[in-house]
C-alpha cells in the first residue's frame, strides 16, 4: 500500500434503482446529483484519495455534495454501490469485501468515527462513561474497574470532567457531546479516525476549543484522520491535504494551503472567495 493507511478508489454510492446513465448524467457539469433519466441520487461517484500514517486529510464541499456519504461508506453505515477502500490494518485488503464478522471487528477496533450529530454516535441516555465503555465491551473488556479507568482517561483527555462520567449526555451541551463522541471514537486506538463536521452547529468559542483538542489528540496519537467540513477554516486549521467535493465528485485535490491560496476549479474559487 506504499505505506498508506487507507486508499479509496472509485467510491460510488447511488440512492435509487439506477439506469446505467446516472453517473454520466450527473456531477459538476450538469450541476446536479440527481439522474435526469431515472431520478437516482448519485450521492458520490468515483471518489479516490489516500491517507498516510499520522496524516489529516480534509474533505470540503457544500451541503449535499456527498461528504457524509463517503464517511458512511467507510464506517459501514451504508453499502457503497462500487469502489474499494484498501486498509493497512486489514492487511491492505478492501474493507467493502469484508464479511460481517470482519466488518464488526473493523468497526469495533480499527475505524473510529465522530458523527455530524451526537445522537448518531451516542446513546444520549447511557452515561458518558458507558458510551465509551461500550466500545471497550465490544473489544471484550470484562473488568469494570479497568474500563472505568480507561474511560475516565479518555474523557478527561477530551476535557469532560471525570465527575460527570456517570451522567447521561442528554444533559450535556453540544460541545460536550462532541467531546464524548471523540473519547468514544478513540477508545480502542483506531488506525483511522473519521470526523464528520465535528464542530458544526457549535458556538464559535466552543468550536475553537474543540479544534485545538482534535489537533492535539491527533498529534499525540498519530492516528490517520479524515476531517469532513463545509467550513474552510476548519480544514485550513487541521489539514495538510484536502479534497473539494461538489455534486458527488471530487473537483479539486491537493495541499490545503495551495487550494486555499490558488484555487483552480471555479467552484473552489467561489468557495474560497465567499469565505473570505
Amino acid at each position: 500500500m506504499n505505506g498508506m493507511v487507507l486508499q479509496v478508489e472509485g467510491l460510488t454510492k447511488l440512492y435509487g434503482r439506477g439506469c446505467g446513465r446516472c453517473v454520466a448524467s450527473t456531477g459538476p457539469g450538469p450541476a446536479d446529483n440527481t439522474c435526469p433519466h431515472c431520478g437516482t441520487v448519485v450521492a458520490c461517484a468515483g471518489v479516490s484519495f489516500e491517507v498516510g500514517p499520522g496524516e489529516v486529510l480534509g474533505v470540503v464541499g457544500e451541503s449535499g455534495s456527498g461528504k457524509s456519504t463517503v464517511a458512511a461508506c467507510l464506517s459501514f453505515d451504508t453499502e457503497p454501490s462500487s469502489g474499494a477502500a484498501r486498509f493497512a490494518r486489514f492487511g491492505g485488503r478492501d474493507i467493502f469485501a469484508a464479511d460481517a464478522a470482519e466488518r464488526r471487528r473493523l468497526r469495533d477496533f480499527d475505524i473510529g468515527i465522530v458523527y455530524q450529530t451526537p445522537q448518531q454516535g451516542l446513546d444520549l441516555d447511557v452515561t458518558a462513561g458507558g458510551n465509551v465503555a461500550e466500545r471497550l465491551l465490544a473489544a471484550e473488556w470484562r473488568h469494570i474497574g479497568g474500563m472505568r479507568d480507561r474511560a475516565s482517561q479518555l474523557l478527561s483527555r477530551a476535557e469532560i470532567p471525570v465527575s460527570r462520567m456517570d451522567e447521561a449526555p442528554r444533559h450535556f451541551s453540544g460541545g460536550m457531546r462532541q467531546r464524548v463522541q471523540l473519547a468514544r471514537a478513540l477508545a480502542n486506538r483506531p488506525a483511522l479516525l473519521i470526523l464528520d463536521e465535528p464542530t458544526t452547529g457549535l458556538d464559535v468559542s466552543v468550536q475553537a476549543r474543540i479544534l485545538d483538542l482534535i489537533r492535539d489528540i491527533q498529534r499525540e496519537t498519530g492516528v490517520a484522520t479524515v476531517v469532513i467540513s463545509h467550513d474552510l477554516g476548519v480544514v485550513r486549521l487541521l489539514t495538510e491535504r484536502a479534497l473539494v467535493m461538489r455534486h458527488g465528485r471530487v473537483v479539486e485535490a491537493g495541499l490545503t494551503d495551495q487550494i486555499l491560496e490558488d484555487p483552480q476549479h471555479p467552484y473552489t474559487q467561489l468557495l474560497v472567495n465567499s469565505a473570505v
Binding site: A100, V126, L137, I144, R148, D166
Partner: peptide, 19 residues
C-alpha cells in the same frame, strides 16, 4: 444474535454498576 454481538447487554450491566 447472528453475530453474537452482545455488547449492548454488557453495557446494560455496566450501567447498572455505574449507577
Amino acid at each position: 444474535h447472528a453475530e453474537r454481538d452482545y455488547s449492548k447487554m454488557w453495557l446494560f450491566l455496566y450501567e447498572s454498576v455505574a449507577k
